[in-house]
Write a protein that binds this DNA or RNA. Structure first.
Length: 582
RNA sequence: GGCCCCGUAGCUCAAUGGAUAGAGCAGCAGCCUUCUAAGCUGUUGGUUGCAGGUUCGAUUCCUGCCGGGGUCGCCA
């Protein structure tokens, strides 16, 4: 039950009754929100201000008419017209008790909705090159994509989590050559790794495995012969590393899509380019020299095969074929996204790193072109994460020796802290990831603050069981708790925070912004900790009160609801909810 | 030079176009014979980078500047 959506519907109905001439679009602009200032009541609507001008009315008059209309609503204790035409509602206490009751009834379902109407949405994230273990640079996008996918599933979308394996380009040839060196090393050769090849130790086991499988038989063969054999094996080994890293971080995928399957005669790229030709979207031409290339000698005017990306909102048309005749990465990507569209996805989301922000427009152009404008593509750009250690930022690169691995981070600070901290920022905000802070167990560190709140809810139940053995705390008895006893301002205040969960979920899902969930959980945790502390000064505000078993039961129902919402939120984020902190 | 992101309290950051812009940290003043002080309460702190525009109303949308970061024909 979302009280805000509920009242938005009531306001819309009232507008329709009072002003039959108002269009549906106009009415849809009216919203119901929690006012920032609690002095303005429980709910606030801008309906009168939004509707007044198009209807040629005075906003205050409209507001007064609406207020009059709501006077007969039994859930409303007062409606006020304030400021330029705000409508401020105060709700009757039973409304809050009803909400609390619904949390208990719905449990894990409280907050879920049918917003997505089971529509298919494809969320692509990570898609790191399979050339080694994942490094920290991939972590943010991995966690973000995973949480966003969970969030969308939570609100009723049919979500497919996808990883695009870039296993077709020149990089994987280099990878295979690097593995071949390790193969020779495993057979006793003294090797020297030339610049440009991958130097990482993680290829040693691949070399050993190749030696075990092939003996010395590859040594005498030409590269053209061994390359495909080595490539296939090293790719499989690298994807095993990637999968292990993802599993370690709790990041899941439904589909691992290989770029290589798009290539080849009669493959998806051929088919897609032919389709684009038939549509008149491909031509032979030359591009202007980009301003970034300053020296004439770096630029060669060349006629090439171009996609009319500009017709679909891109800044320029884009090359599809390299000078050696092979396809560009973008050509494969167009085919890949046509493939997604043909698999039935009309909603696509790509999670990319900041270094790919220049790629967004052409990707959206491609999706628009291959879907005939039927599919939409939202690209979520992850801004940089600066890794700090002792206040010193340090660089990481897969080719350099001293790379910081994703697995290092998880091992150092733990999965939960890694995930929560990365989700506690808007994706478009560059962030610092400070090892020291993430390991702190203070309010500075939101993940511990939120998990501690959950542990405390569990602690309350443990205390109740040990101190009040006579009190029956099974689910049935709790569900029948006399919630009407929860009338103190502290009780109502906490319930109001709980009541915002469904609205938070909806807003986060619509905006594709999982960080809103993390911030909400922090707020809920703060509200709970605050209530807890009140029991110190005022014993009647304790959750467990031996002098009043009925009130205790009602309070425990409230604590149970808080715990449930914390669990629901943490589950969406993929963060655990420990029963106690050790 | 083009494109993208950012600019909000001393610091790190919030705020689907709403009212007097909010949290945490740091600072200051308090609370432990306690349902776990890993916590709580109070308080100081602002020309939301600048200038225009749209709007009943702008931190939010549009335009132009300033500053920081990222990126820039066939790498993936």
């Amino acid at each position: 039950m979302d009280i805000f959506a509920d009242f938005a519907a009531r306001v819309a109905a009232a507008l329709k009754t009072l002003y039959p001439e108002a269009s549906a679009e106009l009415i849809a602009r009216a919203v119901v929100e929690p006012p920032r200032d609690p002095g303005h009541g429980d709910l606030s609507s801008n309906a009168a201000m939004v509707v007044a001008k198009p209807l040629g009315k005075n906003p205050r008059d409209v507001a007064v008419a609406l207020a009059e209309h709501f006077k007969s609503d039994p859930d409303v204790t007062s409606v006020e017209v304030a400021g330029p035409g705000f409508l401020n509602f105060r709700l009757d206490e039973p409304v809050w008790h009803r909400i609390l009751k619904s949390v208990d009834t719905l449990g894990a379902e409280y907050g879920r909705s049918d917003l997505g109407r089971s529509e298919k949405v494809n969320v692509e994230y990570v898609s790191a090159n399979p050339t080694g273990p994942m490094h920290v640079g991939h972590t943010r996008g991995a966690v973000f994509g995973d949480a966003l996918a969970s969030l969308l599933a939570y609100v009723g979308y049919d979500v497919t989590r996808e990883y695009y394996i870039n296993d077709a380009g020149g990089q994987v040839d280099v990878l295979a050559q690097s593995a071949f060196l390790r193969y020779r090393e495993a057979l006793g050769a003294v090797i020297d790794i030339p610049k440009g090849l991958y130097p990482g130790d993680y290829l040693k086991p691949v070399g050993a495995a190749l030696a075990a499988e092939f003996g010395e038989s590859l040594l005498s063969r030409h590269e053209a012969e061994w390359l495909p054999l080595v490539k296939e094996r090293v790719l499989a080994a690298m994807m095993d590393l990637v999968r292990a890293d993802l599993a370690n971080l709790g990041v899941k995928h439904d589909v691992f899509f290989s770029e290589r399957t798009l290539h080849g005669q009669g493959g998806d790229i051929d088919l897609t380019l032919q389709w684009l030709r038939d549509e008149g979207l491909i031509y032979q031409g030359t591009l202007e020299r980009p301003k970034g290339i300053s020296h004439d000698d770096e630029w060669e005017d060349r006629e090439q095969t171009l996609f009319r990306a500009k017709d679909f909102g891109d800044d320029t048309d884009r090359a599809l074929v390299k000078s050696d005749g092979s396809y560009t990465y973008f050509a494969a990507d167009i085919a890949y996204h046509r493939n997604k569209y043909l698999r039935g996805f009309k909603h696509m989301i790509n999670v990319l790193g900041a270094d790919h922000s220049g790629y967004v427009k052409r990707l959206q152009a491609a999706v628009k072109a291959v879907s005939g404008g039927e599919a939409d593509m939202d690209v979520k750009i992850m801004q940089l994460v600066r890794l700090l250690k002792n206040g010193e930022p340090f660089k990481m690169s897969k080719r350099s020796g001293d790379l910081v691995l994703l697995s290092d981070v998880v091992e150092e600070v733990g999965r939960d802290a890694t995930r929560f901290m990365l989700l506690y920022r808007r994706n478009e905000q560059a962030m610092d990831f400070d090892f020291a802070l993430v390991k702190e167990h203070t309010r500075d560190n939101p993940v511990f603050y939120v998990q501690y709140a959950h542990a405390r809810t569990c602690s309350v139940f443990r205390t109740a069981e040990s101190e009040l053995p006579a009190l029956n705390l099974n689910a049935e008895h709790l569900a029948a708790a006399p919630l009407e006893l929860l009338v103190s301002p502290a009780d109502i205040e906490l319930i109001k925070v709980v009541a915002q969960w469904p609205r938070t979920v909806t807003a986060a899902a619509l905006a594709h912004e999982p960080h809103r969930i993390a911030f909400y959980l922090y707020e809920l945790a703060a509200a709970f900790h605050a209530f807890w502390a009140k029991g110190k000064d005022d014993r009647t505000l304790r959750f467990v009160n031996p002098e009043d078993l009925k009130l205790t039961l009602a309070r425990l129902a409230l604590v149970g609801a808080v715990r449930q919402v914390l669990v629901n939120g943490l589950t969406v984020l993929g963060v655990s909810a420990p029963q106690e902190l050790s």
